[in-house]
Design a protein around this nucleic acid. Structure first.
Lengths: 212, 212
DNA sequence: TTTGTTATTTAACGATGTTAAGTTAACGAT
DNA sequence: ATCGTTAACTTAACATCGTTAAATAACAAA
């Protein structure tokens, strides 16, 4: 029984319904569980209908992840209000790690899975908008921390600092997400690893030993 | 024209031929290019014959990666001869990063791709053998560096140290492998990021500022 | 009422991992 | 020597996947 004419708003709503269905499969059963037929089934559509809203599977998954990249930026946004630049930097990193570990599938999709070069034009995220763009936030936080003059001169390079600290946090999250179950390795508790990492980085970067 | 009875050695040789063909596709065209039919074609067999040597595709890929995990351990083994514990630690990390960036597909497969919990029984690698087991090497290097008394007391925990430094290096490699082409990010040169990371970690860990 | 457009479905294609059912050469025993 | 039996391999086939092409039905406009 074929359909009625749809307004743009209705079409957008269906798009959202599809994305949510895909996300649900995605979160609970991993990427592999996201099949076009599976998503379609979940919303009572036929598989091919999804192609009316997304050009292919990759675009659908991209939309799912895009929405959650925005959620990441929003989760981080609250830390930007912290006045002390160092505390802001620390809380930003903490929240990043918390988000990653709380949303491992999305984190994997965003940062651990091969994907075509991301076209900013196709994203719903406005690049360099500090409310939406997590990377822009990171650069901002690193820049203001550098400006506060708390780091040793050799580390007072906002972009390098940002990308290196990011790499440290990413390393923690990525190994935890991918290798936590690996019987080969006697993992220490993730909290202990996070704490160790934070202290190591801070002691390396700061001019003076952080007050205990 | 069907075949002749094969000795165990011949069977092992064919296994190796299959692994090598799979590796070749794998390295040059990524995981997705490894199809059973593709591998079979490359060696003049039919796809189903591979199932006589590997129970399924995952086991085949596992065998490919397993062989290269051994190569990683061998690449790192040379650094174990360095007498100075700190220098050994540094060179070990350096070699690790070099291997990862030189073998991105294998690195991705080993440490960035979801896989069933690795069963040490099925591996060709002898766990805890410092010539074959890279993780055992890492623990050893970290332990002797700790024993040298060069690190601040709060960081003098071999396993935590090992896992944290590993995470740092992994973060560098993983972001580089997965995100280097991402237009969203104005990446600094990977060499600069490695250098920054090394210095940050060292300054954090060491009791005294490293001699320049 | 006809005509065309829009939203959707069914049918189908080609590729993939994998299993089942052959096919043929070599070997062991008689 | 020949007659099963088996080892090594192939061809057929299945289910599932992403995706495209063709068909269908409801609505809007004429």
């Amino acid at each position: 029984m074929p359909p009625k004419v749809k307004t743009d708003a209705e079409k957008l709503a269906i798009r959202t319904v599809i994305i949510d269905a895909a996300r649900d499969l995605f979160i609970h059963h991993g990427v592999d569980a996201v099949t076009m037929r599976g998503v379609a089934n979940k919303i009572g559509y036929s598989a091919t209908s999804i192609y009316l809203y997304f050009s292919d599977k990759e675009q659908l998954l991209r939309a799912v992840v895009d929405a959650d990249a925005l959620k990441l930026a929003q989760a981080l946004h609250s830390t930007l209000a912290i006045s002390d630049p160092l505390e802001r930097f620390l809380q930003f990193a903490q929240h990043y790690v918390q988000f990653a570990l709380a949303n491992p599938n999305h984190y994997r999709m965003m940062f651990m899975t091969p994907h075509l070069p991301c076209d900013p034009a196709l994203s719903s995220i406005e690049q360099h908008n500090p409310e939406q763009d997590g990377y822009a936030q990171l650069i901002g936080v690193a820049t203001s921390a550098c400006a506060a003059g708390i780091f040793k001169d050799e580390f007072n390079h906002p972009v390098l600092l940002a990308q290196t600290v990011w790499a440290s946090m990413h390393g923690l999250c990525a190994l935890q997400i991918n290798m936590a179950d690996d019987a080969w390795i006697n993992w220490q508790p993730i909290e202990a690893r996070i704490d160790f990492m934070m202290r190591m980085c801070l002691q390396g970067l700061l001019k003076v030993t952080p007050h205990e």
